[in-house]
């Protein structure tokens, strides 16, 4: 099958991804084979291609916002029919036995595997994934239009959920790209007052376009568009070393702590 393969990371200007023909993967126990219809491009893919993240496996196929149809199911699968249209996210699999996995906080599992990072992803014609890490995609969305939901959208949604924001409260979005353009619509639906901070004129325009949608009667002009520079000007010092030491030594700051 056709794939874009990363042999060795390099600055993207040097085109580190190479078109390659690689064997069609076979779904193992509990896995499904997906015929990729579209795969979103994420900033994490750029970090991967350029080697900003340590790469555990090379060569490797990046891509983790995948929409496609179930082509084949491996042994011991039961969630989908062949030809179901599903989406795959960055989260590929957890160990399944640690405390985090047991508490539905598998995102913090120290042995978690990520799509297009530890295992081949969606910059290809096909990919395999555990069926429990695939999700039905509504027919409302085309393959391509569903892709931003699967990483930028989900991580933004998680951030919104963890913020515990309530209807009527204010939300500030710093930067406005793939993630924020999904989250703003969830926040507006929740009747939150959204403020967007972005320098890009195109992004400002998109924020204004998407912001008031879904809100019948906006209570006030939705977006206060300021430059981050004018808003975030550091004046004094809080030593990063202190923060680092705290996060290393203080149990209440371990991953997942409040």
């Amino acid at each position: 099958m056709k794939a874009m393969l990363l042999d060795r990371p390099a600055p993207i200007e040097q085109k580190p991804l190479r078109r390659a023909d690689i064997p069609l993967p076979e779904p193992g126990t509990g896995e499904i084979l997906i015929k990729v219809g579209a795969c979103g491009v994420c900033h994490t893919d750029l970090h991967t291609a350029e080697g900003d993240l340590p790469l555990p496996v090379l060569p490797m196929v990046p891509g983790h916002q995948i929409v496609g149809r179930v082509e084949k199911a491996g042994p011991n699968t039961h969630r989908f029919w062949i030809q179901d249209r599903v989406g795959v996210t960055w989260f590929f699999a957890g160990c399944g036995s640690c405390n985090f996995c047991a508490q539905e906080r598998e995102n913090l599992c120290s042995k978690a595997l990520f799509t297009g990072y530890h295992v081949n992803g969606g910059y290809a014609e096909y990919m395999v994934v555990p069926e429990e890490s695939a999700f039905l995609i509504s027919e409302l969305f085309s393959d391509a239009h569903a892709t931003p939901l699967l990483c930028g959208g989900v991580i933004g949604y998680r951030a919104l959920r963890l913020s515990e924001i309530k209807p009527g409260q204010r939300l500030g979005l710093y930067g406005f790209g793939n993630s924020a353009h999904v989250v703003i619509q969830v926040a507006v639906k929740m009747d939150c007052r959204v403020h967007v901070f972005t320098r890009s004129l195109r992004h400002q325009k998109l924020a204004e376009e998407l912001g008031p949608r879904g809100l019948g009667q906006p209570r006030r002009p939705l977006s206060n568009l300021l430059t981050p520079r004018s808003f975030l000007r550091p004046r004094a010092r809080l030593s990063l070393k202190h923060c680092e030491r705290l996060t290393r030594e203080a149990p209440w700051l371990w991953p997942g702590s409040q």
Partner: peptide
């Protein structure tokens, strides 16, 4: 850090 399966299922429903 990353996302859970629940996040994905919920967002896709809300979307």
């Amino acid at each position: 850090a990353n996302t859970t399966r629940r996040d994905a299922a919920e967002l896709l429903r809300v979307a």
